[in-house]
Each structure stands twice: as C-alpha cells, then as structure tokens.
Simulated scan of single mutants.
Amino acid sequence: MKKQAVVAGFVLLSFTLPLKATAASFTKFYVFGDSLSDTGNVFTATGGLVAPTTAIPQEPPYFQGRFSNQQVWVDYLGDQLGLTPSPYITLNPTIPNQGINFAVGGASSGQGNAVVPNAPLPGVLEQVGLLTQPILQVNQKLDPNALYAVWGGANDYVFGQATNATQTAQNLSDAVGLLASSGAKNILVFNLPDLGKIPFAFATEQSNNLTALTNDHNNKLAEELGKFSNNSDLNLISVDVFSLFNQVQANPGKFGFKDVTNPCLVGNFQTIISVCPQPNDYLFFDSVHPTTGVHQLVANAALAAIEAKSVPEPAINLGILALGAFGAVGVVKRQQKRSAGRIFDAQLALADSLSDRCNTPASTLLPRGDATRT
C-alpha cells in the first residue's frame, strides 16, 4: 500500500487558523495522560462537584476542573472533531458517550501518580489498561474508527525521581503497543515541551537538568515509536509540542502572547496568592501549566497532523499539513476510509469495571494541602 512521508517542521498558519477535521471522521475520542489533558477527573475525585473552591484544582481561578484558565486542548480538538470524551470518574454507564478521558493530573507515565504516590490514581499505561482489559475480557476489539491520544511523561521528571528517559519512553511506547494490539488504528502521540523553560524549573533551579531530560525523552520516544513503522495497519500520528513551544517562546507576539516566562497565577492549586488580570497574555497560567491559548495551539497542531494523514498525497493545502513527527522524517500509512461503528457492549463492561473506582470516597484519593500537584 502506498505510504506517505511526514515532513519535519511546523508552519505557523497551522497554529493560528481554526481548523476543521474535513478529511478525517472518528467515531469516538479516547484520551490518556496527565494534568495537561485532564478535564475533571482529579477535580471530581477531590470533591469539586460539591466544593469547587477547595478541590484540586481550585475553581475559580481554574476552569471547571481543568489545570488552566479555560478549556484545554482536549476540549478544542473535541470541538473540531465533534466528539466530547467523558471524564472516566464521572462516566455514566447507562448513557452511550463519545469517548472517555482517562487523563489524571499528576499521572506517571506508567503506574500510579508521581505527585500523590499512595493514591489509587492511574498512570498513563495503567489508564490504557482500564480501557483495553474490559474490552478484551468480552472478546472484543477496540473501535478501529476511534481516535486515541497518549500524552505523558512530564511528571516523571518534574515531580518524580526519573534521572533518564529510558523507562518513561518505554512506558509510553507500551501504552501505544497495548492500544494497537487491542485493535486501535488511529493513535495520537505527543512529545514534551522543554520542561527546563517552565517557571517551576527556574524557581527550583532545575532548568538545565529538565532541559536535558526533555531532550532525552523526546529522542528516546521517537526511537520507540519508530519500532511501529512496519505496522501497516497502524496510523500513528506524532505531534511535535517541543517545536511548537519553542516557536511561541521565540516569537510570542506572533501568537498573541506578551509574557512567555512568568506565570499568571502565583501560588499553587489550592493556595492562590494572586492572579493576573489578563491570563491570555501569558504562556503559563501557573508555574507548570499553559494558558488556554496555548492549548488551542496544541489542538490545532494535532488536527493538522491528523489532516496530514487523511488527505491524498501530496496535497499540503495552504501549508497547514506540514507537521513534524518529533522533528524527524518518518514513514506512515495513509488512512483509507472510516466507517461508523460502536462498541457499546464493551463500553458497558468497561463502565462496570470502573464502578468501584468511581465510588471511592474523594478523601481517599488525594490528600489535602500538597503544594506541588500537577
């Protein structure tokens, strides 16, 4: 089958123009990750639906369980795809949904939580298991027409004890492999922005170390993902967040930002000291997490990568389809056609498997008063 080369590099137009998924049509949207992708799991687990001002993250100034001032990339990309994944902790098993968001703030790349190690909160690889294990137990496969997104690793380096990227990259590669072996065909994978440039790194004098770990992570992750190149049935879509953040920080005015160094919010997720009057002027909302404008750029970059895999070669209309695969030229399979289909019976099995976790008292999931959560 004919294959398509992905050109390394970003085109600024792809970050600034609103895009529509005209060539790709997915039946569902599943997300696995950490606080950059969490749309309410930690918030609900810490009592946010009852007492939002004492939950993690505190609302306000955080937005509806997101670790940002407004929507995150999952929301923006979901809007473009016409799909809204439900946070798994609040999943209602009686209602067919458009996908599930398993992402949990503080999630490690593998098992558990790098910020709250004794809490029953799943890491990224563990999150994938929450979806795949119930599906396989009822002798079914994952929906091949759904979109699956994997983004993690930052907590291993910022809050965990990882001194190199070997295990973290392997965990994320294993997550992709588990999805693929369970029937997933369309998998988005994100690399990391330069963690040495986040305000937390400067405040804790870890900038050089975190930059080195980021480079190690992105290189090793690219190597791991390269092992899937012979799988002609897999549409592996890489999103180069590292290059995106570097371009924004090098030319903030082109993207509408005025401050790409300091956080808008001073304090932590529960103890807010001050919040700037114009958060969208800032790249960072707090010392770790970006503002909603950055999340929209990430969503646009992801959609551009999806579109690049979904149109006949060599049409790179308006330049918006030239999205790099982690800064390297890779060979990927072009998507053919997608048909409608659902796996509702398997969804019910999944919901049953999650019921115990959903019913866990919030007080047992996350302790209060930790000043370094993500």
Rank of each mutant, 00 (worst) to 15 (best):
V6H: 10
L19V: 04
K28G: 12
G33K: 05
D34C: 09
S37K: 00
D38E: 02
V42Q: 11
G47P: 08
G47F: 12
G47T: 13
G48Y: 00
P52S: 09
T54P: 07
A55V: 05
N69C: 05
W73N: 09
V74P: 09
D75H: 03
P85L: 05
I89Q: 13
P96Q: 02
N97H: 12
Q98R: 11
I100K: 12
N101C: 12
F102G: 00
F102K: 08
G105L: 00
A107S: 00
S109E: 03
Q111G: 12
V124A: 05
Q127P: 09
D143W: 07
P144E: 07
N145C: 11
A146K: 04
F159M: 11
A162N: 02
T163P: 04
N164S: 06
A165M: 03
L172N: 05
L172M: 01
D174V: 01
A175M: 04
S182C: 01
A184T: 02
A184K: 05
I187Y: 01
L188I: 05
N191T: 03
I198H: 03
I198F: 03
F202H: 13
F202I: 11
N209M: 12
N215A: 13
A222P: 08
K227T: 00
F228C: 00
S229T: 14
D233E: 13
N235W: 02
N235V: 11
L236V: 01
I237Y: 00
F245H: 06
V248S: 00
F257N: 03
D259Q: 06
T261A: 14
C264D: 00
V266H: 14
N268R: 09
I273C: 03
P277I: 08
P277L: 01
F285I: 10
H289Q: 10
T291S: 09
A299Y: 01
N300G: 10
N300F: 05
P312I: 08
P314L: 12
P314E: 08
N317T: 15
I320G: 01
G324V: 05
G324H: 07
G327K: 10
V329C: 12
G330H: 15
Q336M: 12
S339L: 12
A340T: 11
G341M: 04
G341E: 02
I343E: 11
I343P: 06
Q347A: 13
A349D: 12
S353V: 06
S355L: 10
L365D: 05
L366N: 14
G369V: 03
D370Q: 14
R373D: 04
